[in-house]
Design a protein around this nucleic acid. Structure first.
Lengths: 243, 243
DNA sequence: CATAAACCATGACGTAACGTCAGGGTCAAG
DNA sequence: CTTGACCCTGACGTTACGTCATGGTTTATG
């Protein structure tokens, strides 16, 4: 069990970065002390290694999370593609070195911009991401959201958030999350997601429910729109519904 | 003469990036058409090449500007150090590749974090920047600003901006930038800079004056604090003073 | 010659991945 | 029991652009 500072030194990342990764749910420490100090275990370090490899390849943190949290995450295959990408990057650097040498000897040349072209790397990156993103839910989401505008998406999101308001009032009134009303509302949410986003099976919904109550982005968004405690209440209702 | 789009395609940078580089004064196109369209010449392309090389090395744009606008800019020496840095980067990537291979074969290892250590690169980068920044003005600035707090610097900046207010009123009243009052005020600014920042020779001051009137950051900051037209008026006054 | 398609401009707002205080607990050592 | 080295959570700042919104310009085409 290592503290933030220790991990920071070991892995050459800033303490702020570790706190940030915790906040966005990319790397949560295995446990906390009574005082709230973060303590990282071996698993966390392994995960951090994966994260840093992706970061070197300039993957956005959101994508990194999606990839390594994917249930279909295949470590060896991902590593193979990471190696491939690293090799492409090495070639890119080598191109830049020869360019710099050329400029030094022959002066700047108008034709010497091809070394800055990253389309090969970008292509491979895109294909790799696609190959990792091909889960059925993702496919479906792509299809359903294909024809939507920015405004459509916002309206849909607002509508979904609206479905949480009853949870907010129920929470304020101290109702039971296992009550029929709460259960019905939970089913409504599940149906809405299935209709507009992707087929929301009980299993997927259960996982989603846990995310609602976990104190992350979901929690704060929902509570901002539907009142304090709405997200946690919803999480409990969903748990009760599916167990 | 190439348009933004053409340069964008040639050099694999976005049009937005070119507009941004123009705005911050990093890469201003050689000319504009009557309609205001940017037109880039050969010099601009050579400069862009330099910029992109630095960008690959993750230099902040401000530093890039400082380096290539430095009167003591030595192209060959800079290229040598860029090549050195690129080679360090290649080694770094190679370290990551062997790490990824190791993980693939033997699983994640706690000791496998040294590949993420960039201190060698950082050290070399720091030394290179120092070697480029060692102009007399810079040294002096370092010394004079050594003991200042954040608040001190803000106060000083405000005071300097205050010296531009007379220019603002003069501009509003349609006065002549070559008048004695304007000249005196310009000398006051020069003296203030010499005292609190760095010895502001006539030559340096002339260059600074041009920057005031060039429509960049200087211009907008001054005009915001001292009234519309103050910066341009100051630029003319300085020009008149020194010619 | 008009009109659509493709390009250009500025301005304003948004974003990612942190850096950097500010304000305040914790804990081992002397 | 205090001091210095850590830790915490906000909250605001920064860099290097992406992304509209809104509107002028140029050129290929019917």
């Amino acid at each position: 069990m290592l503290t933030v500072h220790e991990v920071s030194e070991l892995a050459s990342v800033s303490v702020r970065t570790l706190r940030y990764y915790d906040k966005i749910g990319l790397l949560r420490p295995a446990m906390r002390t009574d005082a709230g100090y973060r303590l990282y275990g071996d698993e966390d370090l392994a995960r951090l290694q994966q994260i840093l490899l992706f970061r070197e390849l300039e993957f956005p943190l959101k994508d990194i999370r999606r990839i390594i949290d994917d249930p279909a995450f295949d470590r060896t295959r991902v590593l193979d593609q990471q190696i491939e990408l690293l090799e492409l990057r090495r070639e890119h650097i080598e191109g830049l070195i020869t360019l710099a040498r050329d400029i030094k000897e022959k002066g700047a040349t108008t034709m010497g911009f091809s070394a800055f072209d990253t389309s090969k790397i970008d292509d491979y990156t895109r294909r790799a991401k696609e190959s990792w993103g091909r889960t059925p839910e993702w496919e479906e989401y792509e299809v359903k959201s294909a024809g939507r505008t920015h405004a459509d998406n916002k309206a849909l999101g607002d509508e979904l958030l609206g479905l949480f308001k009853p949870f907010g009032t129920m929470a304020a009134e101290g109702m039971d999350p296992a009550s029929a009303d709460a259960q019905a509302q939970a089913r409504a949410v599940q149906a809405f997601i299935s209709e507009h986003y992707y087929t929301c099976s009980d299993e997927v919904f259960a996982q989603l429910g846990r995310a609602y109550g976990s104190g992350g982005e979901f929690t704060s968004n929902i509570n901002a729109a539907a009142g304090e405690g709405a997200a946690e209440f919803a999480a409990h209702a969903i748990e009760a519904l599916l167990s």
